[in-house]
Structures are given as C-alpha cells and as structure tokens.
C-alpha cells in the first residue's frame, strides 16, 4: 500500500507519457531558430525588472497592512544601526511580492501530491504564499483577540515579541496554518524586503546597504583591482540609480 502512494509511474503511465512525448516531438516545428550572420538586435530592446508603483496596496487589506507592519517593526526593530523593517518599506515589498508571480507560486509545480518532504526539498505546501498570508494573518489575529482581547498591532512591543517567539518555537498553534512555517515565511520575506533593491518597495534609500557598506548593483570593479587594503567607501547603487544622479540645486 505505501509504495503505491509514492509517485512511481506504472507501466501504462510510462507508455502513454512516452507516446505523448513522441507525438509532440514529431509534430512540433520546434522553438529553435536558425541565426545567420550576427545575432538579432532591436532598438529599445530591454527586459527591465517588473515593479509596481508606490502609493497603493496591491494585495494586503488595510487590516493586514497594519498587522504585517507591527510584525516587521519587531523582526527588524529601529536601533542605532538602522530604521525598522516597517519604516524601510518591508510591508510594501511583501505586498508587491504577494501581488506578483511569487504570491501565486506561478513558477512552482503546485498540483500535488503534497506530502511532507525533507528540509532540503523546501516548501511542500499546497497553499501559495497569498493564501498562507491571508489565512496566517487572520489566524494570528484570532489568536490575539482570544488571548489578549486586542488586535496584534495594538499589543505593546514586548507582548508582540512574546507572541512572535511563541510562533517561532511552535509554542502556540494557529487555526489554519502551521505557526512555525508561517513565522519562517514572514521572517524570510521581511529580510528579503530589507535587503533587496529599493525598486521592489523595501530597503528605502538603500538603508540596509548603507548599514553593511554593500556597494549595490555594480558590475565593474576593474578600477579598484589594484587598490589593496584601502577603504573604498563606494556609495550604494540601486538599479534605479542613486541620489548623486540628481542635479543638485
């Protein structure tokens, strides 16, 4: 019984899939293209990163925005090194990622069968990130209202830290999602938002890059190869440029 659950193709499946492959292989004209001379080139040809404009929310509801803000503010608190994750735009980043292909797991195989995998196999969830946020935030809210008679965002910072720690360790259970996995997802996305290029909504004014001394999206260091043991202090550079590009008045 056990062995039949594992996705081992039987003889019939193997034969039919081979037949389909042969059929596609023989009738398709193929996507290949013969290029003679120099490779093709078109004016204005570019594949810029896909970004969503600021000033509006694309996936999160106002209530969810408040909750995610209250979480990211505690995961990366404002301190002497930097502003908080919330102030750096992590909520905007998460909102835009959920609205895009990441949120719908567009680039993942999502047809199942779903079963627990090894840690090396990564996410094996049937839910995509949008569903995990929607259900996870609602469950977290329900837990806080039940336990503290308050929304998560209205809890004092210490209490929020306590709830987050309980999520992280699995000390509390959420109704619709795995608490530990939900915490791990939000932590992961918050870090991504804090350190990704500002064009994606987070890392406002390259705050994390300035904190680390990371010079940003540069690609040519030939002029620095011979400068051994010197502090270069290169200002960070975003895909969208940097403030030095602007004409100073």
């Amino acid at each position: 019984m056990r062995s039949s659950e594992v996705a081992q193709p039987n003889r019939r499946q193997f034969l039919s899939s081979t037949a389909i492959a042969l059929l596609l292989g023989s009738t398709g004209r193929g996507l290949g293209e013969t290029i003679a001379g120099s490779p093709p080139w078109k004016p204005f040809d570019a594949s810029p990163p896909q970004t969503l404009g600021s000033g509006t929310w694309y996936f999160l509801t106002p209530d969810e925005v408040r909750t995610v803000g209250a979480i990211t503010e505690r995961l990366i608190p404002a301190d002497e090194l930097s502003i908080s994750g919330k102030d750096a735009g992590c909520v905007e980043f998460i909102d835009r990622q959920l609205a895009g292909s990441y949120g719908s797991s567009e680039r993942l195989y999502m047809k199942g069968p779903f079963q627990p995998g090894t840690p090396e196999q990564g996410d094996q969830f049937p839910l995509d990130p949008r569903q995990r946020y929607r259900l996870g935030l609602a469950s977290l809210q329900a837990h806080c209202r039940e336990t503290y008679q308050k929304a998560f965002a209205d809890l004092p910072p210490e209490q929020r830290d306590q709830v987050l720690t309980q999520l992280q360790t699995g000390a509390i259970t959420l109704k619709d999602v795995d608490a530990k996995a939900f915490f791990a997802l939000v932590l992961q996305n918050t870090m991504e938002g804090f350190f990704a290029d500002p064009i994606y909504g987070g890392n406002k004014e390259m705050v994390s890059w300035r904190m680390l001394g990371f010079p940003g999206a540069r690609y040519d260091y030939r002029d620095y190869i011979d400068k051994h043991n010197q502090k270069l202090d290169l200002p960070p550079l975003s895909i969208a440029g940097r403030s030095e590009w602007r004409v100073k008045d």
Partner: peptide, 12 residues
C-alpha cells in the same frame, strides 16, 4: 563580424 551592440537605456 561580431557586431557588438549597446543596450537601450530608455527604461532606466
């Protein structure tokens, strides 16, 4: 015969 190309910067 290389035909090097300069990329478009209109988007950036």
């Amino acid at each position: 015969s290389t035909g090097p190309a300069m990329p478009s910067f209109a988007w950036n």
